[in-house]
Design a protein around this nucleic acid. Sequence first.
DNA 1: ATTACCGGGTTCTGCCATAGTG
DNA 2: CACTATGGCAGAACCCGGTAAT
Length: 407
Amino acid sequence: MMCTIFPNYMLYHAFFLCIDLWPSIKMAAIPKMRVLVNLSQSLLLQQSLRLVPLQLTSTSLLGRFCSTSNEPKQSSNPVNTSLLDNLNLLGVDLKRARQRQPGVFRKAFTNEKGVAQFLQEKGASSKVIASIVSRYPRVITRSITHLEQRWQLWRNIFNTDEEIVSILNRSPESFFRTSDNENLEKNIAYLISLGLSSKDLHRLLTTAPRTFSNSVELNKQMVELLEEICLELGGNNPVQFAKNILSKNVYMLIRSTKRVRTNIDYLKASLRLNDSDLLTFLQGHGAGILDLSNEYMKNNFNNIEENLSSLGCKKDDIIQLIINHPVILYIGSQTLNSKIECLLKGGITIKQILEKPRVLDYSEHNYTERLNKLREVGYDFKKYGISILASSRKRFYAKMEKLSAGD
DNA sequence: ATTACCGGGTTCTGCCATAGTG
DNA sequence: CACTATGGCAGAACCCGGTAAT
């Protein structure tokens, strides 16, 4: 673990040192430092070389479209019609964009051509660019300098531009919503300081990119909440506790502390665990469900109790099931009920399900298929159990092969 | 050789409300 | 006031395979 954290941390700080030292150390840079050297390098280039031709091009060809967003002097202007023309040319969904952020369309100075060119240079197709602008029009108020800087900060965590483009295409807002690059730097430093590995950061930025546009203060609040909860439950390593949860559930930092606090209180009241066991639960399997919306969790919990009770399960067994297999709370009521029904119809008992709750991870479609095949060969669930329903496709078919050969 | 146990991979945005800013 | 920046919300599973145990 330390092996992955340490160099990353070093690299990050190396970057800030590099800004000043770059010319003298660039030749000595070890390969692992390349990313960060490239960052400082390209920022320098940005300032000294690259920005100039870009802006010159924009200025000479497009005149007014080279401006930056830092000129809020014009307000309540009529809609800028050449802006509309430009966006049309890019294939932007104007109706959607104007509905989304009408203010952008009244600005006298926007940078749509520059932004489009920037994204294109990073490898985004015109279709992707149009989609990005349609969904987050404010992007065209960002300057190239700002975008390049932000891009390079993301490149601290991603290895290729392609990865970033795919995330922008998925969630443009996550990248573009804030213009505060300094906050982004602080966020990266903060997350590293928590002891998250570079792999954790990569996963975090890939799956919950909004995390990095949160204010550092907001992220800190969540971490502090988790540490607080650890102490409340008598834990003695709150930092590790928070880190465990964050690396097990990458959505934590894009949830409100209110939501997480409510969920933990609810689980504490419902699972009847002592503090020590609750602590273990929360930083183990329980971490994965802490980000559920409060009502969803309650509804699912109640549904499980109701459904299983009606099937003759004891309350203690039901609670034990949830403790052993909390991801069951992720499954919507309808889906879960329907899955259980399907298994029961297939000749499996509720007792078997309680003993092997992992079976519930699989889809009903998967059950149907497997139950049919197993029926054909007369598979005896009483004798052999139901684990076969929770095996991988590969293993299932290998087993089927043997079963039919045996006949 | 086969199954059981278990950790882990993939995944999650797009909208609304409001505080903040000038 | 117009507009931006930021926080918050609802929505909602499925699967693979390494390795220990037998």
